[in-house]
């Protein structure tokens, strides 16, 4: 039971790092970016390539994945995404699905369709024995890194000048623009940073779940759930939602009740049902506040 909670916590933290960029960009520009998972996948493959082909350590791969995906994100934002902000949601959806398909096929072409998993660094192998529970060292590392990141994000958002500009822009971008805040630049920066975080999360996660070309589609729904449940106006909302989702997902895989003689995995049902219910009763998210836009 404790192990499930622990694994779920690690998984949820990871999900948060993966999804937080999407949550902020969605709240800021009201832009539906279904290609967010592609950035996470890119980060994962950066780690795979660096570690398997060049024998570098995971500790080098993580920052590299962040920088590379952030750069790609910035490039795409300036060249392509910027043309889509004033288009309809349908066009945004089509465009980003198109990008996702292209990314998936490209990765398939260069890396093959088989799932890739990277080795955990030697220093983080094995478990900590703590009385009755044994905790996986790598998951402790993941939790620690993600917790640090979350605290840094929260502080950056609430204490720095950039953070307060960003919050102002999310709350009401028109008024923020009127006050002389360069919303376009803030958005570009945030988008790049969010993509970088996704890449970082992908690299960090590549040692826990395997990475394959289907990754963006598989995780798209998880990202959407995080946003649906957590809302887009804060980062604490998506954070709590990620933890919940992580624990629920891991628990759902362990807990398989028998119904009418058939062993049934309920994980998927529970999660999707919760998402649909939350969307129906609290369209602004479980932890979000209603924003009049």
């Amino acid at each position: 039971m404790l192990t499930i909670l622990f694994d779920g916590l690690a998984y949820g933290m990871l999900l948060f790092v993966l999804a937080v960029g999407l949550s902020v960009t969605l709240g800021l520009m009201n832009f539906i970016n279904l290609a967010h998972g592609a950035f996470a996948m890119a980060g994962g493959y950066v780690a795979v390539v660096m570690m398997q082909r060049y024998g570098l350590s995971l500790f080098w791969s993580l920052p590299a994945a962040f920088v590379l995906t952030a750069a790609v994100g910035a490039l795409l934002e300036r060249t392509l995404y910027v043309r889509l902000y004033d288009k309809t949601h349908l066009e945004q959806v089509l465009f980003t699905i198109g990008l996702t398909f292209m990314a998936m096929a490209t990765v398939d072409y260069f890396m093959g369709a088989s799932p890739q998993i990277v080795d955990v660094p030697k220093a983080l192998e094995g478990n900590f024995e703590l009385g009755i529970v044994s905790l996986n060292k790598y998951r402790i590392f993941v939790i620690a890194v993600c917790a640090l990141l979350t605290i840094a994000l929260q502080l950056g958002l609430s204490k720095t000048r950039f953070g307060s500009r960003l919050r102002a822009a999310v709350d009401d971008s028109r008024v923020a623009r009127g006050l002389g805040i360069d919303v376009t630049a803030i958005f570009a920066l945030t988008f790049a940073f969010g993509s970088g975080l996704a890449g970082f999360g992908g690299a960090l996660g590549s040692a826990i779940f395997s990475i394959d070309p289907q990754f963006p589609l598989k995780f798209m729904i998880y990202f959407l759930i995080v946003i649906a449940v957590g809302g887009t106006s804060t980062i604490t909302g998506p954070f709590l939602a990620s933890i919940l989702l992580g624990v629920a997902d891991v628990a759902g895989k362990y807990y398989t009740p028998e119904i009418g003689g058939h062993r049934i995995e309920i994980g998927g049902f529970v999660i999707y049902t919760i998402m649909v219910l939350v969307l129906i009763f609290r369209p602004q998210g479980l932890f979000g506040r209603a924003v009049g836009k």
């Binding site: 969605l26 539906i32 949601h89 959407l224 998927g268 049902f269 998402m275 969307l279 129906i280 369209p283």
Partner: peptide, 25 residues
Amino acid sequence: FLVLRGSDLTRLMVTLGVALIFQEI
């Protein structure tokens, strides 16, 4: 009735969610 609530984004997620539930079932 589920789909018609909320904005484009909500609809998108609800339709996707319903489809995923069907696939799981």
